[in-house]
Nucleic acid binder design. Sequence first.
DNA 1: CACTTGACCTGTCCGC
DNA 2: TGCGGACAGGTCAAGT
Length: 292
Amino acid sequence: MPELPEVETVRAGLVQFLVGQKILSAESTWEKSFPNDPKLVRDKVVEATVLSVDRRGKAIIIPLSSSYSLLIHLKMTGQLVYKPNQGQGFGGGHPTDSLIHSLPDTSTRVIITLTNGTLFFNDQRKFGYVKLEKTAGLYERNLFLRKLGPEPLEENYTFEQFKTAVQKHNKTTIKAAILDQTVVAGVGNIYADEGLFAAKIHPATKVSQVSTVKLHRLFDVLREVMQLSIKLGGSSDRNYVDAKGKKGSYLKFAKVFRREGKECPVCGSEITKIRVAGRGTHVCPKCQKIKK
DNA sequence: CACTTGACCTGTCCGC
DNA sequence: TGCGGACAGGTCAAGT
């Protein structure tokens, strides 16, 4: 479930550990997790230096000195965890509840060793990937990256942009529209449900039935909710961890997500779980009225 | 073209 | 205790 705030938290952690380090080796135990020509890996990954750690939507991009980049998608269960070598500890010490003490484990798919430590790509369900791509023109060329909509937290992102993009999907539900990565990059199931609750919009409402006022409210709260989550280190539903192998705490603040059967914090009604856009969807039936 | 559904995978949970 | 099946949810391919 890594969504934008989780991926951003991972990125922010990795950037301080990896930049400037040289890669010594890159190996995988599951081919689809690392679908790259071994010769190209030898030529463009081994001996290359990490230049930066970037993010676009839910993807992480690591440009290397070889003019190639690692393009990483965590999908649902991916983790990127950095384990320093003996004597190269994290500033501030190792978190005692960190996953690094048991790495590698059964879900480890890719192992990248660097001069001062090791980067583990873990992925229980094997949906994610670490792909080697040419850096030049990557964002315009890559089939996934090129289709992504705007970054929701960028300063120049406007309501007009959001409105125009959402309303192109007039026939579908508002939840399906905001989950569409071409509309806005980075929203997933957690923040879709939380945002729609905060904006008091039922997720199954057709886009054409959402008023401009409510849409504006949704635009604002989606950004607030993701901003807050980044501050709290992301959500930890199941197996999300940051670059140090630590869980995030945002879910403690979630008002509807995974709270079915519990009380709505606003009106006290029972939160229900339904299916919208093929996903488990959490709603307060009183705060979020259906309008068809 | 817009939209929906199934596939990709594995681990967990629930009912019998 | 074991077992089948539903479910988790990001993205792509195939179907309507």
